[in-house]
Amino acid sequence: MRILITNDDGITAPGLKAAEDIALAIAGPEGEVWTVAPESEQSAVSHCISYTKPMRVTQLGPRRFAVDGSPADCVIMALGHLMERAKPDLILSGVNRGFNVAEDISYSGTVAGAREGALQRIRSIALSQAYAVGMDEGDLFEAARRAGPGVVRKVLDMPWDPLRGYGIFYNVNFPPCSGDKVKGVRAARQGRRPDNAFRAQEEVAPNGRAYYWLAHGRGNELCEDDTDARLGTDGWVTVTPLRADVTAHDAIDDVARVLDAPAEIAEA
């Protein structure tokens, strides 16, 4: 199997090495693993592409490249240039440092890397590792490294329809615990936190000027029971099927009824 890896934390991120370990286990001794990742961190760039500026590509080793662009750029560069003559069988985007659940999915460059793969009709999986206080003392990605190959193999057995419309891609999140504490793997729908995903946090510089950071919100534990955010917080690996199609299909009939209704005659 030929596997392409990208991420949004950058080419030097430790989570990328975890993804490479997972990919090597899946590809096997006869397979190939390619890495095409941003040269610097691109967290929360969503599906940004470098449409109005050129990009630079630097080869760092055999089948290993850094791109001064977004995760979606990296996938486009790989499929349209670097791997044009031998497309990958699978794209892994990650392993991201931190959850990509609930509203995070809209902002995530990691998820966008997998989404771009699905748009280009390649089987694609986003991988993210949640973390908690104290996990930095050891291998933050130990749960992903340990459970990842088995989970990816399971996902490869799930439904794929890359040639029909907007094909499915998968979002996998590993819980904030060591590998031996993982409870198992669960299918999960995208959650919704009760509060906003981000907030503005003020910091005052030594010169008295105010600056603002966007700080991540909290509330995974308050999401509904069968959602990615809640199950991950409770120790489960979650697998969520996604599509790039953002049509509100449940509202189409209501929209059509309004549009098809006779127009009211304006009063004189």
Score class of each variant (00 low, 15 high):
I5D: 01
I5F: 05
N7P: 10
I11L: 05
G15N: 03
L16P: 10
L16Y: 06
A18R: 10
A19F: 02
I22P: 07
L24M: 06
A25H: 14
I26L: 14
A27K: 09
V36R: 06
A37M: 06
P38S: 06
S40H: 11
E41F: 03
E41N: 10
Q42A: 14
V45F: 08
K53Y: 07
K53C: 07
P54G: 06
Q59M: 06
A66M: 03
D68E: 02
S70F: 08
S70C: 11
D73F: 04
D73N: 03
D73Y: 04
I76M: 07
H81G: 08
L82A: 03
M83F: 06
P88M: 05
I91E: 05
G98R: 03
A102I: 00
S106Y: 15
S106H: 15
S108E: 00
A112C: 08
R115H: 14
E116C: 14
R123Q: 09
I125A: 14
A126S: 15
Y131M: 00
A132Q: 02
V133W: 03
V133R: 09
G134Q: 04
D136W: 14
E137G: 12
E142L: 09
E142M: 03
A143V: 03
A144C: 09
A147T: 00
A147E: 00
P149C: 02
V152I: 13
V152M: 08
K154D: 06
K154W: 09
D157H: 07
M158I: 01
W160I: 01
W160L: 02
D161E: 04
P162S: 02
L163K: 06
R164D: 08
Y166I: 00
G167S: 10
I168T: 15
Y170H: 09
V172H: 15
N173A: 13
F174D: 06
D180Y: 12
K183G: 12
R186S: 11
A187I: 11
A188Q: 03
A188T: 08
G191S: 05
R193P: 12
E203R: 13
A205I: 00
P206M: 00
Y212L: 07
R218S: 13
N220C: 13
L222Q: 11
C223P: 14
R230W: 12
R230N: 14
T233A: 12
T233Q: 04
W236Q: 07
V246D: 09
A248G: 07
H249K: 12
D250T: 11
I252L: 15
V255K: 15
V255L: 15
R257L: 13
A261Y: 07
A261S: 14
E264W: 07
A266M: 07
A268S: 13
A268H: 10
